[in-house]
Write a protein that binds this DNA or RNA. Structure first.
Length: 423
RNA sequence: GGAGGGGUUCCCGAGUGGCCAAAGGGAACAGAUUGUAAAUCUGUCGCGAAAGCUUCGGUGGUUCGAAUCCACCUCCCUCCA
């Protein structure tokens, strides 16, 4: 039995593998090369890609060589797997830009350098763009049966469902990804592909193609889809997707995302998203069972994952804001603390007058979408100004009332803040 | 190329001339309760203080009145070739 696979199993991180026993043997008998693909569908990855990224890292720590494939070519096509509808094509230059930013992000998780199992980032545009359409159809396409392809669960809803449909472009996606595996096997002796469970069809396609083109036996491993106990979608909040790019989701917002993890999910997420051992996590869970009130799991999860993604500094800034806003008294904050909060990525807005109505302030930032909503929030008692509840919709906030004549901190609801800076 | 079916407010989806800012569900938001949970209960959920205004793929038309009828355009789907 292979220790790494056993650990992944214990963490619940394995959905399916091909040739289970042979895979154990394969990984135990030497340093292997594996890859995972990341298609550029935006200028940043989001936390949905965190599980595969961390698994690449786990493999590397176990002595294997990870390849992060950025889909410069496949990103131009669009993966139809389990997607309800055909997607819009993005232009070459946009995708090329995305490839660059995603390359950088991916690089933060795995070690490069001189060691034998140093990571590499590859781009499938490098080999796919070299292939002409005749070779594609003769050398790759000939190995695929359309009969088999339309049977794949991943495209079923597009084929069966009334009102859906799939273009030849997206239908061919599987062939490109399959060819990636064969090409990486040939060039880099890559023998394992990992991915989310939605990639199973594409991965097995690649395994078959590699056997046919290269006469090589290669393996696949998929991770389960990350789900939440309440059935809502993982990775989204009221303010949208949680990105890995700190410019798109601040370390503070990122930290907050994890801190609000449901009790029912937190230990599972600790196993998925941290490098704490399963034994350590079991201990945390055991301790939490015996304390009344707030469990410690969410805090540990938030700290571990924020450190992994944003480093010690990002974690420190996230914790500073969290500490200031959620533990007790705002009046304890010094002027430099307040200045630091804005620096650390707490949403902040400049105000150019000496006074403004509460409604104006709320609508001038993300806290309220319209005057109507702003009034409703005030009426509901959802608005706090510098820690004091405001219930008068006509209230005026002045510079003179500001903390240090400069800062007004407004809270809407349980955990949404905006700092106003008077000029 | 031919025939047919569609595009409704964040999503799904009802609505075929006035009672429609538009059913229902989901998501979301606020309050109570709590642990910055869950569950539950209450309220909100186009804009506007209100009068009212803007919306049902687009443009134009019929009508006292249109999401609903007509014309053209556009995008999507299904089947046939």
């Amino acid at each position: 039995m292979n220790a790494l696979i056993e650990d992944l199993k214990a963490r619940g991180l394995i959905a399916q593998t091909t040739a289970d026993e042979e895979l154990h043997e394969h990984l135990s008998s030497g340093s292997r090369t594996l890859y995972c693909g990341f298609d550029p569908t935006a200028d940043s990855l989001h936390i949905g890609s965190l599980v595969p990224l961390l698994i690449l890292k786990r493999f590397q720590e176990a002595g294997h060589k990870p390849l992060a494939l950025v889909g410069g070519a496949t990103g131009l096509i669009g993966d139809p797997s389990f997607k309800a509808a055909e997607r819009k094509l993005n232009s070459d230059d946009i995708v090329a830009n995305w490839v660059d930013s995603i390359k950088k992000q991916v690089s933060a998780f795995i070690e490069f350098g001189e060691q034998d199992n140093a990571a590499e980032v590859v781009n499938n545009l490098d080999w796919i763009s070299k292939m002409d359409s005749i070779s594609f159809l003769r050398d790759v396409g000939k190995h695929f049966s359309v009969n088999a392809m339309i049977q794949k669960e991943s495209v079923k809803q597009r084929i069966d469902r009334e009102g859906a449909g799939i273009s030849f472009t997206e239908f061919s996606y599987m062939l490109l990804q399959s060819y990636d595996f064969a090409a990486l096997n040939k060039e880099k002796n890559c023998t394992l592909q990992i991915g989310g469970s939605d990639q199973w069809g594409n991965i097995t396609g690649g395994i078959d193609l590699t056997r046919r083109m290269n006469q090589e036996k290669v393996f696949g491993l998929t991770m389960p889809l990350v789900t939440k106990a309440d059935g809502t979608k993982f990775g989204k909040t009221e303010s949208g997707t949680i990105w890995l790019d700190p410019a798109k989701t601040s370390p503070y917002a990122f930290f907050q995302f994890w801190i609000t993890t449901l009790d029912a999910d937190v230990y599972k997420f600790l196993r998925y998203f941290t490098f704490l051992t399963v034994e350590q996590i079991a201990e945390i869970e055991e301790t939490d069972k015996n304390i009344k009130g707030r469990p410690q799991g969410q805090g540990i999860l938030a700290r571990e994952v924020t450190r992994l993604v944003h480093g010690e500094e990002g974690l420190a800034s996230a914790e500073r804001i969290t500490e200031a806003l959620f533990s007790g008294n705002l009046s304890n904050l010094s002027e430099s603390d307040l200045a630091q909060l804005a620096q650390d990525g707490l949403p902040a807005t400049d105000v150019n007058n000496d006074s403004a109505s509460i409604v104006e302030l709320l609508t001038s930032c993300e806290l309220a979408a319209s005057n109507k909503m702003a009034r409703e929030f005030v009426n509901n008692g959802a608005v706090m100004v510098n820690g004091e509840k405001i219930t008068d919709t006509e209230a005026t906030i002045t510079k003179a009332d500001a903390l240090f004549s400069r800062y007004t901190l407004i809270k809407r609801g349980k955990r949404l803040f905006n700092l106003f800076i008077w000029k």
